[in-house]
Amino acid sequence: MQASAKTTSARPTSAVILEAIRRYSVLLILLGIGLVFTLGSDRFLTPSNLMNIAVQTSIIAIIAIGMTFVILTAGIDLSVGSVVALCGALAAGLAVRQELGTFTGIGLALLAGAAVGVINGLLVVRGKMPPFVATLSTLAIARGLTLVYTEGRPISGIDERFTFLGSGEILGIATPVIILAIVFVIAYIVLRSTRFGNYVYATGGNEEVSRLAGVRTSIITLSVYIISGFLAALGGVLLVARLWSAQPNAAVGLELDAIAAPVLGGVSLFGGVGNVTGALVGAFILGILSNGLNLMGVPSFWQQVIKGVVLILAVMLDVFTKRRR
């Protein structure tokens, strides 16, 4: 004990500072961006705008949390954007066109999302396909099925109970934000305190070692894709609830933001490193960026460019402050 205490104090101050920057780098970036926008626009730092950002970010954040589980196992789920569209369309369509009612429609849509996750997981675990290829295929399939099911047209006419999920408030807080908070807390606890969460990290850290230690890595891997699919479906339902209709071309390219958020937040694409807090902060960086840039009147084409540059800067900061070994 004494010796270990000695080693800590023996570390040079520069290393300690570097470590602090590394650990809190995303938070610093988030605050820095917030500061720039506060100075750049007097409409940025207002309660209504902050709630607005939270609502706008909540859907991508929920999906990014699911993505974090997958990335922690060194996998990737490219199908989330298509799953958002498919499950949103299913929820609205089953509720309105098939007249099954709002709750049944939403419930079945969430199950459908989990089912896509089962397929993704089985392709990876049983089919031994690289996650990138497996989920690229289901990306195409789910998008195609969405177009088939909607016949390429929006589905509208959802009832108030449905739209409440997207535009309602509970105790003054927007419903999507509350749902995000619940998802986040559960994901946080699962990853931090449960055996499953521990095995997610272990599988991503070294699958073979985990398997030899008696961890059933195939079940862990399968599970993370189910979680990702389920949360993507939830995101799809919330999107429909916010837009009051299901769009067959919704969420095209959304997988990129859903991957960028955890990566911004320090989740390693090689697996085993990171947490959902990082993913949440990462999602808010993206959300604040588009909100602030809008307020400052930056054209949306340029916003894409700036987002990309911020991603590069954030990851570079992470790489350069990483301890060398």
Partner: peptide, 11 residues
């Protein structure tokens, strides 16, 4: 060696 580098010793 079969330790997972990012996990703690205890884990």
């Amino acid at each position: 060696l079969s330790l997972i580098p990012y996990l703690t010793v205890g884990k």
